[in-house]
Write a protein that binds this DNA or RNA. Structure first.
Lengths: 325, 325
DNA sequence: GTGAAAGCGCTAACAT
DNA sequence: ATGTTAGCGCTTTCAC
């Protein structure tokens, strides 16, 4: 591996000059620049990130914490983040938050001196470590407490979704929340529904709000089970909101297995607008989230100097109408 | 951040001794060990990976190259790899291989001094850089030429799949390959089908082998389009093999949109056995691949010393029967 | 059994 | 406009 030193010798200058040419900072004569560039090319020099990171005492790794790597929603996010990070010379590393090994992982992140952490494991990860990371200058995203926040604003999407049920004469929507009860107040989709159900002329009945144990269990299984139980319970319903498209996949299946026709007997609306939800049968009407914007925002929040502790970035949503309503 | 030096001072020993205690290599008196451990705990020492990596001139990053991050199959793999890597103190970083920026990315990987590269972008990535990486001691997986290989052996799965079509009286299976024609000889599923179709009593007709432009286009779209065209072409068929479950999703939809009943009119078999293919309508019969074993193998191949240039690890497959045949 | 010391390759403050 | 140099924190050889 070629070092800066070797490039310097070849070009007949000092390492500092080589550094200036490469970083583009500081004064360098055209002549020196020329020689350095030539040497870099001839020797095929590649900067050693290990060394520069040590020197700067900071790596260019952005850690992404996920609880359910298989949920395609997260993958949309990761895809966007990888793309954005690449542009800014950063890399994305994945960490699975399972069971109770959170501690060990956070410890590692400190060891690696990651430049930032994006917590996509909102349902599992309590972030009591917050302060330690801040002290080390590691940017945290979505780690409770204060700090910059990217929030997906479901208001418009939920409004349109509820309006769409109302318009088609639905009165008794169920809500497949899928997460545990104590987490419900956390989620805007659920609270919006609870607070506004009556405004849309719905008959509110808490037995139609279904909790589950996502992400311990796969989203589609949770959706299936919850819908099956709802049917078995005999509580009347004529439509279903699902917290995510994957839960909706399970709901669709449960409905199908029990002889319900969608959308004739029951309407279903999902959330996320995954790239293949138009291929569900029937094609799923769902709340679209600008996942690319969300992923980009995460990376930008970590890398941009301009982001302060109380910056908030909102991601918009809207209903995509297909054939399940 | 606490350094080894500080721990050494606190424990009243040298940094070398601290190193010995922590790494567990070399002779250390019980007494010294005791003191060091105490100091480590009190000071909350965490080794600085940046420094140790520089010293060793090798990072503990395993780079994963993907072309289609949204394909759940890859995510199954990544999940397994993250799990395995964590156990061995390594981290998984994702790199998207899009368009023609491969060069830049490979260049970066050299800069980062990654300890290995797992190429999951077999359909896009020519690996002419092979030698440079080897020189640098970077382990490569699935990068053409020689080198250790993890191969998914579809023989048994394909055999059972073809047998299942035969048994149910199908004679004219189509094969939705989805990839471009020149890549077909590369893929065992396709070649197995071509070579054995007649043995199973099928009527072989090359017009039923459908190529596409995956991964440029999403798998489900490719499946949909190809199936739509097949129907439009008028070439008779009574069953469809799909290269992947996501393509099968598109095929199922195209069949549905055109009034075909599955499995009554047409049987469909997918490949991969994603965690949610049992939720397709109808539930998809598919070839199961041991994705966990595959992911583990990749990581092991990179980290294990015992792996030589010509090691080959086979991953088994088998048919999972559901309701699409 | 333990310690001293030489770098790994880079950056940046300082000197020229 | 350019060069010198002092570390970043760790590992590891070598000497005691």
């Amino acid at each position: 591996m070629v070092t800066k030193q070797e490039v310097a010798e070849r070009a007949g200058v000092s390492t500092a000059t080589v550094g200036r040419v490469i970083s583009g900072k500081g004064y360098v004569s055209a002549e020196a620049r020329e020689k350095v560039n030539a040497a870099v090319k001839e020797l095929n020099y590649r900067t050693n990130k290990l060394a520069s990171n040590l020197r700067k005492s900071k790596s260019n790794i952005i850690a992404v914490l996920v609880e359910d790597l298989l949920n395609p929603y997260y993958m949309h996010l990761v895809e966007a983040m990888v793309e954005r990070a690449e542009q800014q010379d950063c890399i994305i590393s994945m960490f699975a938050i399972k069971d109770r090994d959170v501690r060990k992982i956070l410890d590692d992140l400190l060891s690696y001196r990651v430049c930032g952490i994006v917590n996509l494991a909102m349902f599992t990860c309590d972030f009591s470590w917050y302060d330690i990371f801040l002290e080390e200058g590691i940017r945290l995203i979505n780690c409770t407490k204060s700090g910059p926040k990217v929030v997906v604003d479901y208001t418009e999407g939920m409004r349109q979704a509820m309006e769409s049920f109302r318009r088609t004469g639905r009165k008794r929507p169920a809500f497949v929340a899928g997460i545990e009860e104590w987490l419900m107040p956390t989620d805007m989709r659920i609270t919006y529904f609870q607070q506004n159900a009556e405004k849309y002329g719905f008959e509110y009945d808490s037995r139609r709000i279904l909790c589950g144990n996502y992400p311990m269990e796969k989203a589609h299984n949770v959706g299936y089970e919850l819908c099956r139980k709802l049917i078995a319970s005999g509580v009347p319903f004529d439509s279903v909101f699902c917290l995510t498209d994957m839960m909706a996949l399970g709901v669709l299946r449960a409905l199908f297995d029990n002889g319900y026709k969608v959308p004739h007997d029951v309407s279903v609306i999902g959330c996320d607008d995954l790239d293949f939800t138009g291929f569900f049968i029937p094609a799923l009407t769902t709340i679209q989230v600008d996942k690319k914007a969300e992923g980009y925002a995460y990376v930008d929040f970590i890398l941009d100097e301009g982001v302060s502790e109380d910056t908030v970035r909102k991601i918009g949503t809207k209903l995509v109408e297909r054939n399940s309503v």
